[in-house]
Design a binder for these strands. Sequence first.
DNA 1: CTGAAAGCGCTTACAG
DNA 2: CTGAAAGCGCTTACAG
Lengths: 341, 341
Amino acid sequence: MTASIGDVAALAGVSVATVSRAIRGLPNVSPATRSRVLDAAAQLQYVAHPHASRLAAGHTMTVGMVVPLLTQWFFTQVVAGAEGVLAANGYDVMLYGVPDTRSMKRFVDEMPLSKRVDGLIVVDLPLLTDDFDRLCEAGPLVSVGVASPRASSVTIDNEEAAATATRHLVNLGHRHVGLICHLPPQALEFTAPVQRRRGYERVLSESGIALREELIVPGNFALQGGAEAMAQLLTVDRPPTAVFAESDEMAIGALKTVRDAGLHVPTDMSIIGFDDHDMAAYMDLTTVAQPALLQGETAATLLLGHMAEKDPSEATSVVLPTKMIVRATTGPVHGASMRAG
Amino acid sequence: MTASIGDVAALAGVSVATVSRAIRGLPNVSPATRSRVLDAAAQLQYVAHPHASRLAAGHTMTVGMVVPLLTQWFFTQVVAGAEGVLAANGYDVMLYGVPDTRSMKRFVDEMPLSKRVDGLIVVDLPLLTDDFDRLCEAGPLVSVGVASPRASSVTIDNEEAAATATRHLVNLGHRHVGLICHLPPQALEFTAPVQRRRGYERVLSESGIALREELIVPGNFALQGGAEAMAQLLTVDRPPTAVFAESDEMAIGALKTVRDAGLHVPTDMSIIGFDDHDMAAYMDLTTVAQPALLQGETAATLLLGHMAEKDPSEATSVVLPTKMIVRATTGPVHGASMRAG
DNA sequence: CTGAAAGCGCTTACAG
DNA sequence: CTGAAAGCGCTTACAG
């Protein structure tokens, strides 16, 4: 049906070897020959069959992206960022969603053996060290979201960012500061939530504020989870006067609960989020912004570099800056909270 | 490094042909042989090299998904839905973002010739008929979002859904109904916006309401676009008392503009969106829900069917239901609007 | 039920 | 600068 390298060779009157060289821009082809080949190829609309060249050449020109949830804001941004630079460099991207432990296990078992991709971008995957090592052995890998001595990574300083958020609240005079975090401890542990929680706890401790476990509630990184978490925070005695939510989506859910309860933000309750989701500006949500798209782009660039190298080089880890954006949902403690304190 | 089919054959003491048959579950292998092969394969952790089998067998076990914007709500839902069922059926998914005309053109030129995938899922692509036909000729294709006589598709009835939304507004007594639509006409035309606009116009006309061009403003399917569109609507004379936004994200942006202007929803302004985005429930936004994830799943199922067939069968087009969800952002016309009317 | 061999469409030393 | 040939790792008629 479609032209093969042999057809081009016949039309140009050269061998297939020469066609291969001419088309890929390799040296040692005379200008005249090259242009004859190129003409023939254009005429036949020839495109190399990828599986054949991949099999012969030993590389696939595709990279795999492994992502827990295909629909969550952060992941879509990272995928979009990486796909852009990868496509611009001639690479295809294979997308793998690994929503649960079982699919993650299967992925780890099969991927390294399947030589399916030239490299892997792994996003925020709560992998066991062993599994992570196995993936690394299979080829170039860059991890986004979680740092590792074994592989290049692009991350943000989650702990410091969370500390900044918490400090902002404390500096406003809040002494009862809630945290809407990720899942309960028994679930899959992503690293970002752990680090963010650490930042939160550190600042409280530095500020001489006792940690109150009942002010830390899971919100599942979703709107509804955030709303429910806030509902729970409102019922404890001596409720918080300020809350740090580990994602904007949870923060926005929390905002709704507060307002539905007839309370006013930030007068009765301060809320700070994390991400700088599109929605954040529109909700006037104070938050700490992370460059999600850029993390994907950077990961792709790093991976491109590793794939180009002959032997595996040093892992390089880049940590991208975050930035607190103060908007309208945080403010000084207020009368209502004074009663509680 | 990793085991090849030859290694397994050697270990099991059979030919590579037998290994191939045994592992793929083909008939004509004795139970004893099969289990010997399977044992050997397991022992060596053998996984068939995909490019080799793909080249030899002539199919790739991967499907391509082509999507305009990787980050927009609808597209992420469709991708997630399709990836789920495809992965469950052993297919890999290759992701292609085609944000602009140029990349779309390149995709159409190269993809059909490259035999890279066994089938294609094309989401909401404003393709020229010719280009669409070329993609169809290359192999099984299912289109989501736009119907076509040439290929199977999964869509919703955009016009009817938009009519329902508009009728809801008209039935509430609104005579000045704005539309926040997609891009200005000169841009790439996606079909959904065109159809939705048609539904809007039809209902106005059926209700004896004259169309006012100045009440139709583009919002670019984004939060900010929606906000700006609403700002513009507020400045026309005799401004609308109700607005239909073609996506929830635009509706939410519009909501913000209205509230920032000190107006009350729905007393001063009714707003209805489209999608039932997660955020919609939280904003108490009246909207018409479309099953985005399901559209992706359905497309994948359809494609799986087509890829399994020997010769191309009839195109089947499934149209999924939409459902209006009345919440708090729409209400009867009110005093304020009477002044204008 | 099983194996030997050709072939999928390329790339890559090796000669020349 | 160019070509003949081997090889990438499988699958698939064809014999037996």
